[in-house]
Simulated scan of single mutants.
Amino acid sequence: MIRITLIEIASFLLPFALFMIWQRLSTRRPEAGRLPTLRLAAAGAGLAVVTMLVLVILDASRAGHEGERYVPPQNIDGRIVPGHFVPAEDDEDSAEPTGEDDAPQ
């Protein structure tokens, strides 16, 4: 949650930072203390809203769909297998590895 909050704050402050960099690098010197605060705030708010929508869309695309079951992350042979979705029709044992393959027949 804190990561999303930091992304939103950074996206709001980005126009201010870019303006300050442009002002420092510009050869033309504007009036001292003149800052288009309202325009920068509007651009920052717009960018924050767009960023929020993109984050929501990306999060929704990773979510499971109807008829899917979530398999949590697992530690298999010292390797972490991330959580994922599998079709609900699959047998529950097929989604989780068993040691039966290693047993002599």
Rank of each mutant, 00 (worst) to 15 (best):
M1I: 06
M1K: 02
I2A: 06
I2V: 08
R3F: 05
T5D: 11
L6E: 12
L6F: 13
I7M: 12
I9V: 15
I9K: 12
I9M: 15
I9Y: 13
A10I: 04
S11R: 10
S11E: 13
S11D: 07
S11W: 01
F12C: 04
F12A: 03
L13V: 12
L14K: 15
P15K: 01
A17N: 04
L18M: 11
L18P: 10
L18A: 05
F19I: 02
M20Q: 09
M20E: 13
W22Y: 10
Q23D: 11
L25H: 03
L25S: 10
L25I: 03
L25C: 08
S26K: 09
T27D: 15
R28I: 14
R28D: 12
R28K: 14
R29V: 15
P30W: 05
E31M: 05
A32G: 06
G33D: 01
R34P: 03
L35Q: 06
L35Y: 04
L35F: 10
L35G: 00
P36D: 04
T37K: 14
T37I: 08
L38G: 06
R39T: 13
R39L: 12
L40F: 05
A42N: 11
A42F: 13
A42G: 10
A42K: 09
A42L: 14
A43D: 11
A43R: 12
G44K: 05
G46M: 00
G46Q: 00
A48D: 03
A48W: 00
V49E: 14
V50F: 09
T51Q: 03
T51A: 04
M52F: 13
L53S: 09
L53N: 05
V54S: 01
V56F: 12
V56A: 07
I57P: 01
I57E: 04
L58Y: 06
D59E: 02
A60T: 01
A60N: 10
A60S: 14
S61D: 10
G64F: 06
G64P: 04
G64Y: 01
G67D: 03
E68M: 02
R69P: 03
R69H: 08
R69F: 07
R69N: 02
Y70G: 00
V71P: 02
V71S: 02
V71G: 01
P72K: 05
P72E: 05
P72V: 01
P73R: 09
P73D: 00
Q74F: 07
Q74E: 15
Q74N: 09
I76D: 11
D77N: 15
D77L: 15
G78Y: 05
G78F: 02
I80Q: 14
V81Q: 12
V81C: 02
P82D: 08
G83I: 01
F85C: 00
F85Y: 15
V86W: 06
P87C: 00
A88P: 07
A88S: 11
E89R: 12
D90T: 09
D91Y: 02
E92N: 03
E92V: 14
E92I: 08
A95H: 09
A95L: 08
A95T: 14
E96F: 11
E96K: 15
E96C: 10
T98Y: 07
G99Y: 03
E100G: 00
D102A: 13
A103C: 07
Q105D: 03
